[in-house]
Design a protein around this nucleic acid. Structure first.
Lengths: 335, 335
DNA sequence: GGTATAATTGTTACCGGTAACATAAAAAGC
DNA sequence: GCTTTTTATGTTACCGGTAACAATTATACC
């Protein structure tokens, strides 16, 4: 009908007719049905964003980036929190395919991409963020990620440079690529210094406070206690702090603590923890741009695209620059 | 077709036929098209959640509650961040109506509900969260909110009980109901103590760090500086801290600082700030349950439902219990 | 003014489900 | 075995858009 032409700004409608249509729309309070439109056009102008937890500032910042780019291109975003649960992930992916989203941005809960089968069959464009997939082989999905190996490497080197030799590390599940990569970077730094890697100092736990707390507790109970602990993400570090407090140890006097991923709010108010930060917002922006280009067929490149963003080391006080630390602490406690 | 019957678990299909259908589905990798389904059924099993900012922990926690209840009832959630911008809000609402969501949960950016016209026309169920609407009159939408008046009242009373008499307050825009209510609670507490309300101590700014920073700076530059500052939400408080630090003042020695809304992460690690907390997760849960009941027509009540959750005062150290404070600070600075 | 041409408006079919009905097959009853 | 009843499967129309084409009306041109 002519209405469709008017609403889509197509040419070939007399100005007067256009006006009449617009008036009728106004009067009847007509609102187009995107469902019907998407249905005929076979495109929904919607992308799915599947992440671990909308409560984690890293992911919300990333999500913000995705949303802003999506809005700029008239796309809506459906958010899904998997809680690192592969079944929930599979369920959400299935729902997204059913809803016929035009594309998906996924931070996979595991390195096994079995739940992607249907997406691949339907040839829905997909971009991974933050985390790699190991199988199926030759999947070659585009990915936007941080350089976890490098980040862990420089963070560990920093600890080593301060004289630490027994460094405990707590990361997420072995199922998640970043956990393996962070451990790898940690090992590389140790090996470079000729320090033997002690497996009992490496804890694959979960990217949660609970996980950080439990694993740190174990590390602190070792006969020969580590002098430093490496928190694998923001949540783990927060859990580690609780464990360290509980053991009545002081940071960094008794044990140093550093974190992969900054600790929102806290660091802003009281920049105490030495961390490696990741550009979460940019990751979201880049992933969304890439995805939308793929959706719109503007991305001619056939090969797997891999965007790796360098994390940045922010040296503060939790690793043990005692002098500065005490001054700053005093400042804060009464600031 | 029989397939539809099988997938919807309808009776009247021979077990053997069902098996055959299921096998065929498996083999062809068939995935139902919810778009078509929603289109015919005139329901999408989707709700829209319109909030200010997915980056604000208060809203993400609320969102989490909504999402969990939604998932439990096989509903999907579309998130929209308005950035407190009424135009963005109107745009998102329009999109949600076009997408024919079954219901909407809204934290309105302003107290004027003009952008709701189309929703009301389409008779889409809607539940407000966190914030009231003032107009149009007699709108009487269901709402789940915290008791801002009461929360601000007890927080202010706490400051008064510690001897503060000049208390500055920074809240969000006057356009937002919680801002007005928090100021009202603040005034009530003062009036009860017979302390004259000084308008220059009341700053309607914006619920953002920037807003908190700027307004606090102004308060601190007054000839007669307030001895305490009341941060209207978590972001404002963070901004206030920056301003106080910049002025080289100490908390609480030189100026006390309390917050409406807890400061995520920070409070967990270092429980320093005296705050009033709101049950964000519960708000999300209740709002979602209410909405879904309305969608499914299980809510027979005609009148406006108003669920008001009481906030809780958490006394810590930023308001000035000096002794405890110093001990704790020491603990943390080396904890 | 009449025809050729261009611009505008109208018509039909389709996207993929489901409700409602029609038909076909199986089970029951005599 | 044949009808009746029950159960299982098939058919049609519709939801509300849009593409492709058809029909109509306006404009250009001689």
């Amino acid at each position: 009908m002519t209405v469709s032409r008017v609403l889509n700004g197509k040419k070939g409608v007399r100005p007067e007719t256009r006006k009449r249509v617009l008036k009728a729309i106004e009067e009847t309070g007509y609102i187009p049905n995107s469902l019907a439109r998407s249905f005929t056009l076979q495109k929904t102008k919607t992308i799915g964003l599947v992440i671990a937890d909308i409560t984690n500032p890293f992911f919300t910042t990333l999500a913000r980036g995705v949303e802003n780019i999506a809005a700029k291109n008239q796309f809506s975003v459906i958010f899904c929190s998997t809680d690192e649960d592969r079944e929930k992930e599979a369920l959400y992916l299935e729902i997204l395919v059913r809803k016929r989203v035009d594309g998906i941005i996924l931070a996979p809960a595991t390195q096994k991409g079995d739940s992607l089968k249907s997406i691949l069959i339907k040839r829905i464009p997909i971009v991974l963020v933050d985390r790699e997939l190991k199988s199926p082989k030759n999947l070659d999905l585009d990915i936007v990620k941080g350089d976890s190996v490098y980040g862990a490497y420089i963070l560990t080197k920093h600890l080593l440079s301060l004289g630490h030799r027994r460094i405990g590390i707590v990361v997420g599940s072995r199922e998640i690529s970043t956990a393996e990569e962070r451990v790898q970077g940690y090992k590389e730094a140790l090996i470079e210094m000729g320090i033997p890697v002690e497996e009992s100092l490496i804890k694959f736990s979960s990217y949660s406070e609970e996980g950080g707390y439990t694993a740190t507790k174990e590390l602190l109970q070792m006969r020969e206690r580590p002098t430093a602990i490496f928190g694998g993400n923001n949540f783990i570090t927060v859990g580690a702090i609780t464990a360290i407090k509980e053991a009545e140890l002081r940071i960094p006097h008794d044990v140093a603590l550093v974190s992969f991923g900054d600790i929102d709010f806290l660091s802003q108010i009281y920049p105490f923890f030495t961390v490696v930060t990741q550009p979460a917002y940019s990751m979201g922006v880049i992933a969304a741009e890439l995805l939308i280009r793929k959706i719109e067929g503007r991305d001619k490149v056939k090969e797997k695209r891999e965007v790796v963003l360098k994390p940045e080391l922010v040296i503060r006080e939790s690793a043990g620059e005692l002098l500065t630390k005490e001054v700053r602490a005093k400042e804060f406690c009464s600031a």
